[in-house]
Amino acid sequence: MVGIDVANGVVGAVLGIVFATLFQQPLQDAWFKVRRRSTRAVRRLRSRGEESGPSWTTFSLGPLHTPALIVEGDGESTIGAEAIHIQVVDEEVVLPPDMAGWRNEIEAESARLQAGNGTPIWNGQRYAVEALDVSRTALEEQPEVHLRLRPTDYYTFLAAQQLDRRLPDGATPRSRYLDPDAPLKAPAFLQCSFAVNIAVVTADDMLVVTRRSDRVRMSPGVWNSSVNEGLARHIDSSGRNAPDLYAVARRGMREEMSLETNEYSLALLAFVLDSERRHWSAHFSARLKTLTRDDLRARMSRGVADRWEHQTIDYVPFRPADVARYLLRADRVHRWAPLAPALFHLALVDAHGRASVERAEAQVVRRL
């Protein structure tokens, strides 16, 4: 038996040597091929999931897409008046020669309207945005906004709004002067609009939403922020002083809602750019201290300085899901002023926190 075991051991060893000699290398080669192919497959899957895109994207919510580019601010922290530095450059904005005639056309139209007993186009004094830069403080890393403005007027603004009108050589102001990959860069003559937009919330938690009058020249009939007020040189700059954005917001609250400074708290949430039309905005929220929806209605019934700017006012429960559903209503989703939806989102974040707001918005979008 011992001899048989020894013989079996010898035969097994010989067969093992033969098997290793004949099959070890092919098995190793096959194993390495399998590993290489699986690695390539994993890499291909990963590469299919990778994509690149611009770091600056405009505000959207489900099917609602806007040209609003939030340049600074996220709603969770406010921007104090001391963090805003505004410089006014003396030189007035001048249109390029091939666009100057467009301004002359608007001036001539206003003269014709006045001669025919129509309503002329009032050429208000405005500001153009030369540049807006954002930095951070050294220790707290709080935002500091540097805004550089130049004088302009409403006729120049209307001429510059014709971004897709053909120039003599066939180009357009948009194609010649704007780079879609650099949305924050534009000549001042194409940025003749800076306004404050305010989301007003009553003491009983109702968001005020307005519809622009059909009589206004820009964006008639669209749904908009509670208050929209443009910077006016003859009102907002005393002497040679630069305008104060918080003061402009308070003027808008008084002129459009008949509200005095002591009746609300005011917070600056963000700086936002309408990248399609080159309109700049400071987005504010205002919380009424004691006035409810009914109180505000009663106040406005007794007279509003700029009543003609609005034709309808809605009151929406100021809760994330309710506001999101309102923004996405079939009769609203394509009728918003470009900067209003971002304003209401930021106001919700300021009041309820980002996580709560985004969770509610996502649920509303899923249920559409």
Results as ranks from 00 to 15, higher is better:
335 R>S: 15
317 P>N: 09
318 F>L: 03
344 F>E: 00
324 A>S: 11
330 A>C: 12
341 P>K: 00
349 V>E: 04
340 A>K: 01
321 A>N: 10
358 E>S: 11
321 A>V: 05
340 A>H: 06
344 F>P: 01
320 P>M: 01
337 A>G: 11
359 R>S: 13
324 A>P: 09
351 A>C: 12
363 Q>M: 12
326 Y>A: 08
325 R>P: 12
353 G>Q: 01
323 V>N: 04
330 A>R: 13
348 L>N: 08
360 A>T: 05
329 R>N: 14
348 L>D: 08
324 A>R: 03
343 L>R: 02
358 E>Q: 11
352 H>N: 06
330 A>T: 14
328 L>F: 09
331 D>A: 09
355 A>E: 15
358 E>P: 11
340 A>V: 05
357 V>R: 01
363 Q>E: 15
348 L>W: 06
319 R>A: 14
342 A>I: 02
329 R>E: 13
329 R>F: 14
357 V>K: 03
353 G>L: 05
345 H>K: 12
356 S>R: 13
324 A>N: 00
347 A>P: 04
320 P>R: 03
347 A>G: 08
364 V>Q: 06
322 D>A: 14
326 Y>N: 08
316 V>H: 02
360 A>P: 10
320 P>A: 03
363 Q>A: 15
320 P>Q: 00
333 V>G: 07
321 A>W: 00
316 V>Q: 01
317 P>K: 02
359 R>P: 08
342 A>L: 02
319 R>P: 08
326 Y>K: 01
333 V>I: 15
314 D>A: 14
318 F>D: 03
358 E>V: 03
345 H>F: 14
329 R>V: 10
342 A>H: 02
326 Y>D: 04
319 R>K: 13
350 D>Q: 10
341 P>Y: 02
339 L>Q: 04
325 R>S: 13
345 H>R: 10
345 H>Y: 15
361 E>M: 14
362 A>L: 11
357 V>T: 10
330 A>K: 12
351 A>V: 09
315 Y>A: 05
348 L>A: 07
357 V>I: 06
351 A>M: 10
314 D>S: 11
364 V>P: 07
325 R>Q: 15
340 A>E: 01
359 R>M: 09
333 V>Y: 05
316 V>S: 06
328 L>Y: 08
324 A>D: 06
335 R>F: 13
355 A>P: 11
